[in-house]
Design a protein around this nucleic acid. Structure first.
Lengths: 342, 342
DNA sequence: CAGACAAATGGTAGCGCTACCATGCAGAGC
DNA sequence: GCTCTGCATGGTAGCGCTACCATTTGTCTG
């Protein structure tokens, strides 16, 4: 009577097929695959042979449904093309490539609402862990993270109040360090040029401001920002705006390296000597900063490591030994180069 | 007797909860959510109210298991940080953001074996569609694609023998066009500098070679390549190698824009005049090429559109109307700039 | 050598959803 | 009046897997 539906799955082998072939129960196959230690050597070999012969691959959907837990890491980043986040994501992928965990990336487009929506979607899958960029979640997003029922790692930044765990560094300190370096190098009219101005950029700006105020040199007219997404082209344009506004500018701290590169190119074009007339400092230290002419001073951040570390912490939490240090500050490194060597 | 397991899912509402609250059958809820047209206006409203009140989000795992089809697009790219692929992925994400489809990205690290392994993993999920970069799959990977039981789109390149559908352009023509442009501009000793040398780079090289041979100017010593991953730093180094090997070089066609930028910086550093002494052409036309000083000639490719187009074709195929044109050539555009304006 | 206990294996009953097949009911056609 | 059709809705039976408990076997105690 129980006429089985005609194999909806298109004939791929199931755990029952493997069990039959190996002459064992389905549950034993399941165990052999997930906890090999709990199955005798003999059966394990037999089962492995059957798996290989049939080309069996477990259905992750069925697995997730039965165990109420999907082997998925949910990752939320504001941009896929921004090299900074791409590096973090690469670190995550590399750390997870030999594990059974899959990765699901969500692109929030720097929008809190979008982040909230994606968390809702991700939550419906009962992910094994969540990695989210930034610490400025909306109240709704924060609630979703707190109730996710899985380890959560906030990355890119550190802050006082983690949902669960954190890996990053202080953007405020990074901004201050860059500005202080420009001051030490002898620059005085140091501008800040920033695009996008997401929360991290805001904090770099705050660091710059703190340094300038401490030196008694702060002037709001030194700041040139835009909410427009960052690009090299935009860097050039913003620098021209900044110069028009304040022709006596003798240095710039750029929000990021794209902007810094745009500034450098404009200096070339306008025959402005770097570092003599203008000092330039960037942020993130992309590969090209050390090769450009002149090479550009930048704050090196450890993006790839942020990704690998976040995964390591999440994995530890999943395994039941939550790391003692819930907030990991990976710091940054000021790379002094020709562009500020006055 | 049938003591229900104590709600493994951690208490999130199920379709049965919604059905109870709305006073309808579970199947009607399912239908209201997936095919609203088949449920009466009244019930639809009632059900929507219950969904909203309970905060119900369907479990994609259960859905996939029951329907033998996951609402997932599998995407396979060789790199996550290479801007070229990041742009394609961004196009895919943007095109799918309002659909119920999730995206799963695999990073093949330019390895055919890894690609095969990932296809195996992806296949176990019964994805709704697969988008893979490149056309040079291993025989095993090709078989997996052919038996995937879903639309498949190969992207980045066009070729004669699609698994299913294709969106891209001819890298050979692109390479030839760049080389011909350099020749027309009056350069004669035109080098080729390439890193990574994946199949697409190989075809750009072949295009370059064809142009040079047609002009009777080909010389194998003009070619400088390495399997090392591409970077601006590497561009500088390879250019120095190329110059050491052939000091009379008067032009270079670079594999990609990173390399071209490295070449430009080295020219600045060595006081080589661009475009007078050396002409430079890149590939892909990243944003910065138009801003650099001098601006750099490059072959513009339509990465974002490749992503959006691939999704559109896959979506059409899923909906049952497979596009007539199975191979879409999005072409490229030579952007002539200062670096080759002799 | 009985009893206790651990290790290895299996059976059963779902996980939350949808495919498939009823069922009920209104209107159409004879 | 009756059957026939088509539409809206519901019930049942799984999808492929694992949690939970039961069973079997072997090993160790006293």
């Amino acid at each position: 009577m129980t006429k089985p539906r005609s194999r909806r799955g298109g004939g791929r082998p199931t755990i029952a097929d493997v069990a039959r072939k190996a002459g064992v129960g389905a549950i034993t196959v399941s165990r052999a695959l997930r906890e090999p230690g709990r199955v005798s050597e003999d059966l394990r070999r037999q089962i492995q042979a059957a798996v290989d012969e049939l080309g069996y691959v477990p259905d992750p959907n069925a697995r997730a449904l039965a165990s109420a837990r999907a082997e998925v890491f949910g990752v939320l980043v504001p941009s896929l093309t921004n090299n900074v986040f791409a590096e973090v994501v690469r670190g995550i992928y590399d750390s997870l490539s030999d594990s059974p965990f899959r990765i699901q990336i969500g692109n929030t487009h720097y929008s809190g609402l979008e982040e909230e929506r994606l968390l809702q979607v991700f939550g419906s899958q009962r992910p094994a862990a969540l990695i989210v960029a930034g610490i400025d979640q909306t109240p709704g997003a924060r609630r979703l993270l707190e109730n996710a029922g899985c380890p959560v790692v906030q990355v890119m930044e550190t802050g006082p109040d983690p949902v669960d765990m954190m890996v990053g560094f202080s953007h405020l300190d990074g901004g201050r360090t860059a500005a202080e370096h420009l001051l030490q190098a002898g620059y005085r009219k140091i501008g800040f040029i920033g695009a996008r101005m997401d929360p991290r950029s805001q904090r770099r700006l705050a660091g710059y401001r703190a340094a300038m105020e401490a030196a008694g040199l702060f002037d709001p007219r030194l700041i040139t920002t835009t909410p427009v997404p960052s690009s090299v082209t935009l860097g050039r344009e913003l620098f021209r705006d900044a110069l028009a506004k304040m022709p006596t500018l003798d240095g710039v701290f750029c929000n990021n390296d794209d902007i810094a590169l745009g500034v450098l190119f404009e200096c070339h074009r306008a025959s402005i000597d770097v570092p003599k007339q203008i000092g330039i400092a960037g942020f993130n230290d992309l590969d090209m900063m050390q090769v450009s002419f002149p090479s550009i001073t930048s704050v090196r951040t450890h993006r790839y490591e942020i990704g690998t570390r976040a995964v390591a912490m999440a994995l530890a939490a999943i395994a039941g030994n939550r790391p003692e240090q819930r907030i990991v500050d990976l710091g940054f490194e000021l790379m002094r180069r020709e562009s500020t060597a006055r």
